[in-house]
């Protein structure tokens, strides 16, 4: 098992098999999205949200490492789906969608759903208080874009992920953006670059930890949803997707990598 570190949890998730390893064993194998090449793993089909008790809202908490990680393959959104003629032409020969894989873990405590997303980005992380020669945040320049990740849920219908929904099929997007401070928003999207904050005040929150080129972002939201946010129930099943933007590559809007199909999200009873 240890010689195939990340496959275990993913295979379990992908095949629907039951967990066989203890949490400690899984922790020992890591489940980290390191070094795996795009396309090396099949698309994950299921993420299980384990029932947990007590404090889990620290992305660095060791108990997270004892929960199974699912590796999710991401793919660049095709150039033909980009929303403007300029983008389709100017970026046709320019690589984007550089984050080809992330790892996801899920848990709930009967009150809140927690999703831990981790990935590797080539973007340099900024030390607290670091400034450019102009006394501004180092990433404040006109050519600088932040790393970002989004957890996606279909608000209704069979919303297409790669175009961030459609006119008649919205997507609820939990988007975290690196910065000073980091920001997290619950958004409704009906197409690339159409996202708007959800109508009601969202109780979504996120905590992040970055080290080197690795991001860990823990999203947390009450199980109950709203008009535009999905509800979750212990023992129930939802669908989830992911997208990521590599800031160092000036990725924004539809210039991203996303999973190509929805993944079942199963909550332990």
């Amino acid at each position: 098992m240890s010689e195939q570190p990340t496959a275990t949890a993913e295979q379990r998730a992908s095949t629907g098999g039951q967990p066989t390893a203890t949490g400690e064993q899984r922790a020992a194998t890591g489940g980290q999205p390191t070094g795996r090449r795009a396309g090396a793993s099949p698309q994950a089909k299921r993420i299980c949200a384990a029932r947990v008790e007590g404090e889990v809202e620290d992305p660095r908490a060791k108990r997270w490492q004892r929960l199974p990680a699912v590796n999710v393959a991401l793919h660049p959104v095709p150039i033909a789906l980009q929303p403007t003629r300029y983008i389709r032409t100017a970026w046709a020969q320019r690589p984007y969608g550089m984050v080809r894989e992330l790892s996801a873990r899920a848990a709930h405590d009967g009150q809140r759903l927690h999703l831990l997303v981790e990935w590797v980005s080539p973007t340099r992380q900024i030390a607290a208080g670091e400034r450019n020669p102009y006394g501004e945040h180092p990433f404040s320049g006109p050519d600088a874009f932040p790393d970002a990740v989004a957890v996606l849920f279909p608000s209704g219908g069979d919303a297409p992920i790669e175009t961030m929904g459609a006119d008649d099929a919205a997507i609820n997007m939990w988007r975290w953006t690196a910065g000073v401070p980091d920001t997290v928003q619950s958004l409704i999207a009906r197409g690339i670059a159409t996202e708007q904050p959800v109508g009601e005040r969202s109780e979504l929150r996120a905590r992040s930890a970055g080290a080197g080129e690795r991001w860990s972002v823990l999203f947390s939201r009450p199980l109950g949803g709203g008009d535009e946010e999905p509800s979750f129930h212990p023992g129930g099943t939802g669908r989830v997707g992911f997208a990521a933007w590599c800031g160092a590559n000036q990725e924004r809007a539809g210039l991203m990598a996303a999973c190509t199909a929805w993944i079942d999200l199963e909550l332990d009873a």
Partner: peptide, 14 residues
């Protein structure tokens, strides 16, 4: 009539 890829100026270039 074909868009030409453009460069985003940097803070230093301004």
């Amino acid at each position: 009539s074909i868009p030409v890829p453009g460069h985003l100026p940097t803070r230093e270039e301004f």
